[in-house]
Design a protein around this nucleic acid. Structure first.
Lengths: 259, 259
DNA sequence: CGTAACATTGACGTCATTCAAGCGGTGTGG
DNA sequence: CCACACCGCTTGAATGACGTCAATGTTACG
């Protein structure tokens, strides 16, 4: 894990204000004067696949903004098996729950090389009482979490395995995943996969390990593998590179039951 | 639907402050002075099972606090089938999403006779900028929604049908459902089912229609029916009255896989 | 080159869905 | 008051889907 301090932000100005994804992030609505209220360092961290941002039950004193990469939120069941409850993409906020409780409620594990900003809880609290512009962003973030949780339930945990995999592919394709790369500030930049418009009849989409696909959909690894393999044989998915496919959107729609 | 206006609350004082469930509700932390900021009427409404508080996609300008009864939040799938994504109990808040968007995102349908307070969006907004005490409650409410959504996914949408039904019964029993009755302000009051402590080896629990049970767990009505019927034959559930059962908690735990 | 980790596939058993029928209660109209 | 229709719950039988266990193939990496 590499950590670098954004000194400028600590000073109160710059970096955060000039951040290339600020319009996506928690601080989107902040004004110049608001940044003077930041009195603690905002660290930037870079994590590789498999590493954890935090673990469930950990005591935490920071929320995170994901700048680039992909992260899974995992919840463990009493029997030890795991269920992925959400995916986080650039602009998303992690760990909001510590603003209400003390501990993180999921494990946040990196799926694709991730760059994050660590925002101390005190910074959020301070801004929270000083400026209403953060409130509205906080509300939006919470709202987004609830919406994603509900969608996850109705779209990815309902119906048969084929329909679930198809819906997963559709959501992955339509949200426009990042191709690879590290961040979007310029350095190491790699072109984004342009967000697929739903009108397109084909799109590209990166998949994860079959185990993760299973844990997202509430099916076994084998079922996930079988279903994806069948899609490939049927030509609904075409290999582009390892775990990257071209998707036949209309076919997926049909399978997903969206008619 | 019966509606009565709480004039006193409109005046800014009384009713809300003296509300018997205020410590549970959105206004829990408000202080006397804060109530002066309420410049719009807070209506109280009483709904019967089957009626809707609001429908998905409706434009909305109010949030609701549930005073008594039970409400389901339903999301419809493209194919017309429905999935219940959350249950709301006394003290819970409905419709928070209109503070961020314009429309409600679920249909809120009454399962057991319900009494609600309708809080105009403007009241929340006004209080929101004036007092931080509402913020923290709003955050708690959002947090609660996310938590329940995540639990719903990991506990009620994972594992086989027997385990799911068992977990549903456990959550219903441990949250202490209301027996019947209309509200908790005195009139028509009926004793609550004392919240079951997890140490108890048996508890009582009210169930809903098999169709609803199925829609909560992501299984068919028949599977829900068969599973419940089997639990009754095995003595895990014992009839007390129509759709009210005594539960053998340790047995349910075993079936749920909590070991 | 060998090993480990992951993906695929097969065979089999179990479980859930589907379609259909029967049962019991409730409400309505004759 | 009875007959009938209706609705929700239960149950059965057949089918299909998914989970399980195990073997094989594939890729990546030391």
């Amino acid at each position: 894990m590499k950590t670098s301090r954004i000194e400028a932000a600590w000073g109160g100005q710059a970096e955060c204000q000039g951040c290339s994804i600020r319009d996506l992030a928690l601080f989107a609505d902040l004004q110049a004067s608001d940044f003077n209220l930041i009195h603690l360092p905002i660290d930037e961290l870079s994590l590789d696949p498999g590493q954890a941002v935090y673990h469930a039950e950990d005591e935490g004193h920071a929320v995170f903004t994901l700048r680039s990469g992909l992260i899974k939120l995992v919840q463990y069941l009493p029997d030890g098996s795991q269920r992925i409850v959400r995916l986080l993409r650039p602009g998303d906020t992690l760990g909001l729950e510590i603003l209400v409780g003390q501990t993180y409620e999921h494990s946040a594990l990196v799926l694709r090389p991730a760059l994050l900003c660590r925002i101390p809880q005190d910074v959020v609290n301070r801004l929270s009482v000083e400026t209403p512009r953060l409130h509205s962003q906080l509300m939006k973030r919470w709202h987004q979490s609830v919406r994603q949780a509900d969608e996850w339930l109705t779209e990815l945990s309902t119906g048969n395995a084929k329909a679930r995999v198809a819906r997963l592919l559709l959501t992955l394709a339509s949200t426009g995943q990042q191709l690879a790369g590290r961040d979007s500030t310029g350095r190491d930049a790699v072109p984004y996969c342009r967000p697929t418009r739903l009108e397109d009849s084909e799109a590209y989409c990166d998949l994860f390990s079959r185990e993760d696909v299973g844990a997202m959909l509430g099916v076994t690894t084998e079922t996930a593998s079988r279903t994806i393999a069948e899609f490939r044989r049927q030509g609904v998915l075409t290999d582009v590179q390892l775990n990257r496919y071209r998707c036949d959107i209309p076919a997926l729609r049909r399978i997903a039951g969206d008619i």
